[in-house]
């Protein structure tokens, strides 16, 4: 949809990709501690983008997104253990892709029933399914119960820089996917759903189809990130499915700006830096301070930082493409 309005020259895609390249370069030339710090930040970024694909653009509050990350992690460990039992293994990219695919398939399966729910009911269903899956894993012997599944030696061990590169590739992929989604029918349909789902349907949007497509697409990328984390720690734990992580990604997209291309990136960076700094300086109060700041942000800038920038640009008749 280019050429419709006056753009401000730098567009969101250039900025997002440029910023990722910058983070990548810094991460690859610094010491291991800095790389680990940025690695965790990029991981959150991927999760935020994957949450943004469905929840951010369509406005369907989803508190159980971390389930796809956790299932991705378990896909890798379970398949590595299973393949080892029959005396074989797979190349690493296949494990990671498999994690994404399994998460997406799971999203399709649970999406059909729960995407019929709207608003708060959908949010509660995502919470419920998340806990149900986590508790099931904790109580299934074959899935290692609460201890997790160790795959040391079954998958290749990588140093943090190699893992960081893998995450960067996924991050680029999710940014470009988001860009494409926002510019095409899927994005227009989801934005219409966010504004008024009934009217969207009347305007020809197959709402059920577009919701489930975006839901599975987001799950795919969260699954990929989950696959990488199993490689990183050579283990998958039930803790990967903890709700608190869902809250982290949710905070990141709310801070940055839901439904935008730059929002998840800006939000993740700010969230990561601020949360870390608060944790170090106020070890007992950091969550209280952070929570208060988040509430104020939602009250005064419901569209996040990118939303705020867009609004001030719009006043001057310009738009951030």
């Amino acid at each position: 949809m280019q050429g419709i309005r006056s753009s401000i020259g730098l567009n969101s895609l250039t900025m997002s990709v440029g910023f990722l390249v910058l983070i990548g370069i810094i991460g690859l030339v610094s010491d291991t501690a800095t790389t680990s710090y940025l690695h965790a930040m990029v991981e959150l970024m991927i999760l935020a983008y994957s949450l943004n694909l469905f929840t951010g653009i369509s406005g369907y509050a989803n508190f159980g997104h971390v389930i796809f990350y956790g299932l991705g992690a378990y896909t890798v460990s379970v398949s590595a253990v299973g393949l080892n039992a029959i005396g074989t293994s797979l190349p690493t990219p296949v494990y990671v892709l498999g994690a994404g695919v399994f998460a997406a398939v799971f999203a399709l399966v649970i999406g059909f029933p729960i995407l019929r729910l709207r608003g708060d009911y959908f949010a509660i269903a995502t919470l419920g399914i998340n806990e149900a899956v986590r508790v099931t894993i904790c109580n299934t012997k074959e899935l290692g119960e609460g201890r997790g599944i160790y795959v040391l030696g079954l998958v290749p061990s990588y140093d943090i820089k190699t893992l960081f590169i893998q995450l960067l590739i996924i991050a680029f992929a999710v940014v470009i996917t988001t860009h494409i989604v926002l510019k095409t029918k899927l994005g227009y349909g989801l934005r219409a759903i966010r504004a008024d789902e009934d009217v969207a349907e009347i305007m020809g949007v197959n709402t059920s189809k577009y919701k489930i497509l975006a839901y599975a697409l987001g799950a795919f990328f969260a699954g990929l990130a989950g696959g990488v984390v199993t490689l990183q720690f050579a283990c998958s734990f039930p803790e990967y499915l903890l709700i608190t992580r869902s809250v982290d990604m949710f905070s990141a997209i709310v801070i940055g700006g839901t439904g935008t291309l730059l929002g998840p990136l800006v939000g993740s960076v700010i969230f990561w830096i601020v949360k870390d700094a608060l944790l170090i300086n106020f070890p007992y109060f950091h969550l209280i301070i952070f929570g208060t700041a988040l509430i104020l942000l939602i009250l005064f800038f419901p569209r996040g930082i990118v939303g705020l920038v867009n609004k001030s640009l719009a006043k001057r008749g310009k738009v951030l493409e």
């Binding site: 949809m1 227009y188 020809g204 197959n206």
Partner: peptide
Amino acid sequence: RPFGDMTVLDNILVSGLF
């Protein structure tokens, strides 16, 4: 019932595209 936070053009593009 317009799509309130979308621009006028985007409102029309939705039905145009679909």
